[in-house]
Structures are given as structure tokens and as C-alpha cells.
């Protein structure tokens, strides 16, 4: 019996774990296996990810795994490096986006995500806030009014991110789930603000 998640290296049959990029025994590159994005990028799981740290991990891995480095290797190794690079890109995109990052963390802990799929929800406080925010933006007549609304929205997003980090740090998963949905609405509103700014810049 091998420990959970351990398989044999395709090249030397030595033991490799799910997140391993290379075999410890023969140093052969390992095909990607389904792992969470944090494991993929060799990061500690957590909501707070410093962007510069994430970038460093990502670019470091890209350097080590770039298909050009495998130009003189076997075609199998070249194909593995292409597949791994794609996996790493996907993990990087997931961890860059706070909503996707939160969803990944919730999924890793077995929580059914409300911010996904085609379910509807009736969280009156959140929906009332979202409705009032959007109504105010729809009624804004000057770009100053839009900027006032944007300033409030930015502050709310900052607060929401801090609360979400706190919820994950204290393992309050139901709060994390609720705050992830709230963040989703706040980020959608950012898109709507961007569109409103473009409208005002065209009319003035």
C-alpha cells in the first residue's frame, strides 16, 4: 500500500505525490494531476495572497516548466510541460481573482458554493443594497455623482475583502460563503461603474 495521493513516476516508478512537478528520484517532469490551485502554484492555502508573492511563484514555475526547456527532451516530456504550463496558467488566473480564489477555498473545504450555477437567492439585506446601489447609479446625472457612488463602492469592496479574509482565517465557512456572494455583487457593480464612466466621458 502506498500513502494516499502517491503514485509511481512514469519514468522510474519512484514515488511521486499529486502536487509534484518532478520526480525526486529521477527528476523526470510529472504529468499534471487534479490538484487545487494553491498546491499547483506551491502556495499555502489562504484567502490573503500577496500579489507580488503570487507573481513570483507563477513566474518561477513558468521558467522551470516552459516547453522551450524541454526542446531536447522526449516528446512525452514536452507534452507534459505544455499540459503543466496550461494548468499553472489556470491556477494563476483563479488565484488572481478574489471571487474565484474564495470559491476555490470553499470548494477545497467541501462547501456548496452559492455564487455559482443557476440558483437564485433571497438574501434581503444584500439584494436591497445591490438594488439601491444600482438605482443610484442609474439616476446619477453628473460624473461627480458617479465618482461619489464609486468611492463608497470601493470602500465597501475593501471592507468585504477584509471580512472575507477574517472569515477564512477563523474557518467561519458560512460567513465566507455569504461574503463571497457579496463580493461577487460588488465586483459586478464595479463593471457597471466602468460602463457608467465610459458613458459620461462620451457625453461630456
Amino acid at each position: 500500500m502506498t500513502p494516499a495521493g502517491v503514485t509511481a513516476c512514469w519514468s522510474c516508478r519512484g514515488p511521486v505525490t499529486a502536487g509534484d512537478l518532478f520526480c525526486d528520484t529521477c527528476e523526470a517532469i510529472q504529468p499534471p494531476r487534479p490538484v487545487d490551485p494553491f498546491t499547483r502554484l506551491d502556495l499555502e492555502p489562504g484567502f490573503e495572497v500577496a500579489p507580488e508573492h503570487l507573481d513570483r511563484c507563477y513566474f518561477d514555475l513558468q521558467r522551470r516548466l516552459h516547453p522551450d526547456r524541454f526542446a531536447t527532451k522526449t516528446s512525452r516530456e514536452r507534452a507534459i510541460s505544455v499540459a503543466l504550463t496550461a494548468d499553472i496558467n489556470l491556477a494563476y488566473e483563479t488565484l488572481q481573482d478574489p471571487v474565484k480564489r474564495a470559491i476555490a477555498l470553499l470548494e477545497m473545504q467541501g462547501v456548496t458554493i452559492h455564487a455559482e450555477g443557476c440558483n437564485t437567492m433571497s438574501d434581503p439585506v444584500l439584494l436591497m443594497e445591490a438594488m439601491e446601489q444600482r438605482e443610484a447609479l442609474a439616476e446619477a446625472e453628473t460624473s461627480d455623482q458617479v465618482e461619489t457612488i464609486a468611492a463608497v463602492a470601493t470602500r465597501e469592496k475593501t471592507d468585504c475583502l477584509a471580512e472575507l479574509a477574517e472569515a477564512f482565517n477563523t474557518s467561519d465557512l458560512s460567513a465566507a460563503d455569504r461574503l463571497t456572494t457579496r463580493l461577487k455583487y460588488l465586483m459586478k457593480f464595479e463593471d457597471e461603474l466602468r460602463a457608467a464612466r465610459i458613458r459620461f466621458s462620451q457625453t461630456t
Binding site: 455564487a115 450555477g117 437564485t120 434581503p124 444584500l126 455583487y185 459586478k188
Partner: peptide, 9 residues
Amino acid sequence: GLVGAPACG
């Protein structure tokens, strides 16, 4: 009635 679709905000 106030409802939302969280997947699309």
C-alpha cells in the same frame, strides 16, 4: 419580491 442570481450578480 426581491431575488438575485449570484452567479452573474
